[in-house]
Design a protein around this nucleic acid. Structure first.
Lengths: 222, 222
DNA sequence: TTTATTTGTTAGCTTAGTCTAACTTATTAT
DNA sequence: ATAATAAGTTAGACTAAGCTAACAAATAAA
């Protein structure tokens, strides 16, 4: 049996190890807002349970088992977010904290019912992929809006590391997933972009915003 | 801040104190499946928090504050049960365990959204009343089917202390809330009733079942 | 390359919530 | 009314999850 706390550690390890495949204990403790010795002792417990691979003074890795468990928790989180938005009428900026709690509910029937009612979605309201029931995750590799150049036409597919503030900002600009953006110009000094889309013309987006918007080329060129 | 465990104690105290207004520690510990000293020490903590009124060797009472908190947890539980049945398609026999977990979610927006989507229901899928947002509860006082006599015509309004087995039994007899029952006969020896209703004629219901079915006189006579 | 800094480890304390064993107070039955 | 039983209390131990303080190892800087 994996406790709620342990589940939170697995989830944090999963997201933090996406690029390098491993995580420092200090990063982990920062992410979970606990002190380093706390995270350290948890790593020992998770090693006992064969959910992580860890040796003294080395970075931590998730085991295959740990990776699967983590993906299943993320599945529950993202299904919940989707359910809250699609079936209950919450805004995409409101659902994170509620889903953080509901993801720990122990009832596969509950989440499979959500999945069914939602028609087996493959992304959550922020465009992040929903792992399947076996913990398999199919990641589309999008580029950041800030990686594109003047004249490019791209489709807004996902938000990376979305904060509530960013999502509220996007709301205020009527920028929803699926919007096709045309890059009118880019300010050379600070990277601010001027973009046009169906709802708005020449909206200014700071480079900080452009870094968070994940897009793919529009007009069929994947 | 009231912990999840404390919430469970409050809820148990609430349901156990409905008749006498007070609860023995041994009853409480049986209900929560903990040992007596565990319940005892929790009563001390809840006394500190002014949620219960308790003196050594005397039965425990909920304070006004404790009663309100308990009612609000029960509100969340029953709203959740209703949501699971009405909006997610679960059977009334499947929802208790899931609702036991969801009732502890900390988000009033979440439960108020449920309430709204359900159209502010006043009973849960088993006919139990849903306390309002201030913890006020309006209890209809129904009689047991077993308190009625041959020839009576009554409406099935609620199930008391429903177990999964009882609910499955009622499913098998197509007995749903709102069904009007006509008492054809009562076996004097063991109290078994023969009842007829739209879907079935002369169904036999044991006295154990009849004790659990809460009804009110049909044909307008409240 | 030696020192300084950051990162990780160990030891020991804390709180919530549980337990058992031993004891005390109430209640019930003879 | 006293003994037997049931109910409640106290003391002390345990686990999970957190903390601080002191120390060790690894990394970065001089």
């Amino acid at each position: 049996m994996i406790s709620e706390t342990e589940e939170n550690y697995l989830k944090a390890l999963f997201v933090l190890s996406i690029d390098k495949g491993e995580v420092n204990i200090s990063e982990l403790s920062k992410q979970l807002e606990v002190k380093i010795p706390t995270a350290n002792s948890m790593m020992k417990r998770l090693t006992e349970k064969e959910l992580v691979i860890y040796e003294s003074y080395k970075p931590v890795k998730l085991s295959a088992k740990g990776k699967k468990e983590a993906a299943l928790i993320i599945r529950k989180h993202r299904l919940t977010e989707m359910f809250l938005v699609e079936k209950m009428g919450f805004g995409w900026e409101e659902v994170h904290l509620i889903a953080e709690q509901i993801e720990h509910i122990r009832s596969s029937a509950f989440f499979e019912k959500m999945d069914e009612l939602l028609g087996h979605p493959n992304v959550d309201p922020h465009g992040s992929p929903i792992p399947d029931i076996n913990g398999k995750i199919t990641t589309e590799h999008y580029l950041r809006l800030s990686d594109h150049k003047k004249g490019d036409k791209v489709e807004f597919m996902a938000v990376s590391h979305s904060s509530e503030d960013l999502l509220k900002f996007l709301n205020s600009k009527e920028l929803v997933l699926g919007t096709v953006l045309f890059i009118e110009s880019i300010e050379p000094f600070d990277g601010t972009m001027s973009v046009s889309y169906d709802k708005r013309q020449n909206e200014m987006l700071s480079s900080k915003v452009c870094d968070k918007l994940l897009v793919r080329g529009a007009e069929g060129n994947s």
